[in-house]
Design a protein around this nucleic acid. Structure first.
Lengths: 190, 190
DNA sequence: GTCTATAGAAGGATAGAC
DNA sequence: GTCTATCCTTCTATAGAC
């Protein structure tokens, strides 16, 4: 039931999905649906809030090669960008952005559990690498944010707007490589 | 009539706006509306396509101080980021992202006239500065994209998601300053 | 808890007069 | 070109039986 609603809302957005459609997809009656969720808003909020517990980049990637900053950035960057460009990720992003004004808690939940959480995790890694003398970042939060910005630019915007062609592996790897290069030029200890 | 529709669609999105509401806001009857636009889809497409002729950063900014790369980057970056964070810009972005799947031409028009156009203009500037020996960018397109990414990171995402607080001048200037610093570390001739 | 059936409102679109 | 009035569909939500 939640699964069916999730798929519909993510693919088509709040306005385009009716409670009839959800009931049909979940193979229950509309009355049953309303027995579990007070309203369409409540169902939508539940669905999307649940989907905000994101797992962008697995913890192991941060520890794969602690001594090699470039390799770790390439690994993390690749994982992150690939994650961003997944159809499900893009669909969720579209829905949340679209409804963030009418459902402010939703935008906030997404922000805190998604972009902000990843930035903080990355910033912690930057701190750690700086202490080890392998990076020289005055402000780890800014450095982390900038690395994310370097990755997200271009491909993600194009994909969010559903402009073909869909990014291929070559484009993704080139973007990651360029991001790592620029990041290291700015933050490698000299 | 177009004005009323534009305001409503941009503020509330496609699904939340009815033709009744547009007619009321424009102070005409629904029949009159349908005499000018074949359907709600057609009205929406017209509205948003028109709004895609963006003017992100005025041409003069690119020529304000040709010899000073840092100053020009700060000027352009500031203008661009401020533009991105305007309520109207954010509203338009939300609508286009939300409906880009159901209205592909719309996402494409926005992409071409907005992000892509600005990136190309910026890349042309990078070429020019590189030829003058004031920048050293192997790939101007990538450099331009990266500068935009450095600017767009963080604040724009938060603002898109309508997460308070709204970015203030201090945050904006700090972001621009950090972007310029990182960009120059990566692309200043050595 | 789950169903069928339906209320009640709102939406997109049109007919036909002026 | 513009209006009033209306058609028909679809939507959210609920009543009441099992």
């Amino acid at each position: 039931m939640l699964d069916a609603a999730t798929e519909l809302f993510m693919k088509q957005g709040y306005g385009a999905v009716s409670m009839d459609a959800v009931a049909r997809a979940a193979d229950v009656s509309k009355a049953t649906l309303y027995a579990h969720f007070a309203s369409k808003d409540a169902l939508f909020a539940t669905i999307v809030s649940d989907a905000c517990c994101l797992d962008t980049v697995d913890e192991a990637s941060f520890w794969a090669d602690p001594a090699d900053v470039g390799a770790t950035l390439r690994l993390i960057g690749g994982r992150f960008l690939r994650y961003l460009l997944q159809p499900e990720t893009l669909a969720r992003y579209r829905v949340v952005v679209a409804e963030s004004v009418r459902f402010p808690e939703l935008g906030a939940a997404f922000w805190v559990n998604g972009p902000l959480a990843f930035r903080n995790r990355l910033a912690a890694w930057v701190v750690q690498q700086s202490e080890a003398g392998r990076l020289a970042a005055d402000d780890p939060q800014v450095a982390a944010e900038q690395f994310i910005g370097l990755l997200r630019s271009g491909l993600f915007m194009r994909a969010s707007l559903a402009v073909p062609p869909a990014p291929d592996s070559r484009e993704i790897e080139a973007t990651v490589e360029a991001a790592v290069t620029t990041f290291l030029r700015a933050f490698a200890p000299r």
